[in-house]
Design a protein around this nucleic acid. Structure first.
Lengths: 118, 118
DNA sequence: ATCGTTCATCGTCGATATACGATGAACAGA
DNA sequence: TCTGTTCATCGTATATCGACGATGAACGAT
């Protein structure tokens, strides 16, 4: 999430830039946020308090994690009275899945082409 | 990368625990490390200095990034004279790809079943 | 109007990430 | 043996993360 070298190469197999990718990956790279995603995907919707009850974390902490997921675009939110309705953005999840899969599979494939074992 | 709530649920569609997953994701969640992976996958092998020449980073910084990728199991290394031979572990990349894809696709699918838009 | 609930934000604290330069070990070659 | 190269590690500085409690805003219910 910081300064990056400029590389004069095509951004590889039709996927995002490293910065966009790493932003999404960072949002995913925390056990609590993975659990939140899983939980969110299993219910129609839920509010912050629901998540607090699931995870053994303070409400403010959960709110922070939700904000990170929100800013990464993996989750959407709409105020609902005194609650906040959270739900996963399935399109965003699929897009990220494709981007990550594209990156990793392309790297693995290219590596296998080169073949030479270490 | 820290304390996590205990959740009394199956770990979801046949993939790793959140901790294992997030460890791999964290290694991937940095633009420089993504670039290193891409670069590594495009050559038979390379040494630390090669990567330093690609990225605009100090040698010590690159060495750190390589260590992170190494400890996450995404990259392998073997000493080669005064160099260090680095190469991607394509099996590990594919495994991570499947795990991430499994997680995200399962979440997206479950969310779409529930259907209710926010 | 008042009370209780829900939530986002602020301030704080400790741990960790990220970057760098400096240093020393390991090695190849002269 | 001496020199230059390569690399990992150490030490350091700064920024950010991840956790918490406290606070105040927004809202529903009485």
């Amino acid at each position: 999430m910081n300064s990056l070298a400029k590389i004069s190469e095509p951004p590889a197999s039709g996927c995002c830039t490293p910065d966009v990718l790493s932003r999404g990956l960072f949002a995913l790279a925390h056990p609590a946020r993975i659990e939140i995603l899983r939980y969110l995907s299993g219910v129609d919707y839920c509010c912050c308090k629901d998540v607090v009850c699931r995870l053994q974390l303070a409400q403010s902490t959960v709110s922070q994690h939700l904000k990170i997921l929100l800013e990464a675009g993996l989750v959407r939110m709409s105020p609902q009275g005194q609650r906040s309705r959270y739900a996963v953005d399935s399109k965003a999840l699929l897009a990220l899945s494709e981007a990550v899969g594209g990156l990793l599979n392309a790297c693995a494939a290219r590596a296998d082409e080169n073949g030479r074992e270490i």
